[in-house]
Lab assay of single mutants.
Amino acid sequence: GPREVTMKKGDILTLLNSTNKDWWKVEVNDRQGFVPAAYVKKLDSGTGKELVLALYDYQ
């Protein structure tokens, strides 16, 4: 199956793709996968990378 990404509340993840309104593709610890968009919030990183903050645990 697809590689699952797990996250804990407060984690910072790299946002790869947010074109789908329900599932965003993120990368964390060299793993890529989809997380519910409602579970993360975009951060203003000030760099080229888009980052998101995990609002809830997800696994």
Rank of each mutant, 00 (worst) to 15 (best):
K9F: 05
V52T: 01
L55H: 03
K41S: 09
G46T: 14
D22H: 14
D57P: 06
D22A: 08
V5T: 06
T19N: 11
D44E: 14
K41N: 06
A38N: 13
L13P: 01
V35K: 00
S18T: 09
M7G: 01
Y56P: 00
K21M: 08
L53W: 05
S45F: 11
K25Q: 14
W24T: 02
T19A: 12
V35T: 01
N29W: 05
L15S: 02
V26Q: 00
G10H: 04
Y39T: 06
L51A: 06
K49V: 14
A37S: 14
T6Y: 14
W24S: 02
V52Q: 00
K9P: 06
N29D: 12
W24I: 04
E4Q: 12
M7F: 15
K8P: 00
R3M: 14
K9C: 07
R31M: 15
A38S: 14
A37T: 05
G33A: 12
T6K: 10
K41R: 10
L15H: 01
R3T: 14
V35M: 02
P2D: 12
Y56W: 08
L16F: 03
L43Y: 07
G48Q: 09
L16S: 02
V26T: 01
Y56M: 12
V26R: 00
Y56T: 09
T19G: 08
T6E: 10
L43T: 04
W23G: 00
V40E: 02
K42V: 08
K49Y: 08
I12M: 05
N20D: 13
E50N: 13
L13C: 08
A38Q: 10
D57T: 05
K41A: 12
T47Y: 11
T19C: 11
G46N: 13
D57A: 06
Y58C: 00
N20T: 05
F34H: 05
P2V: 12
D22I: 13
E27W: 08
E27T: 06
W24E: 01
G1K: 12
N17F: 05
F34C: 11
L15I: 05
K21H: 10
E4A: 14
W24C: 04
D57K: 03
G48N: 09
W23T: 02
A37N: 02
N20L: 07
N20S: 07
E50D: 13
I12V: 11
D57N: 08
G48A: 10
T19H: 09
K41P: 02
L53I: 15
K21V: 09
G48F: 09
L55N: 02
Y56R: 15
G10N: 05
M7E: 01
K25E: 14
A37Y: 03
D22N: 13
V52D: 00
T6S: 14
L15G: 00
G33S: 07
V35W: 01
K21D: 10
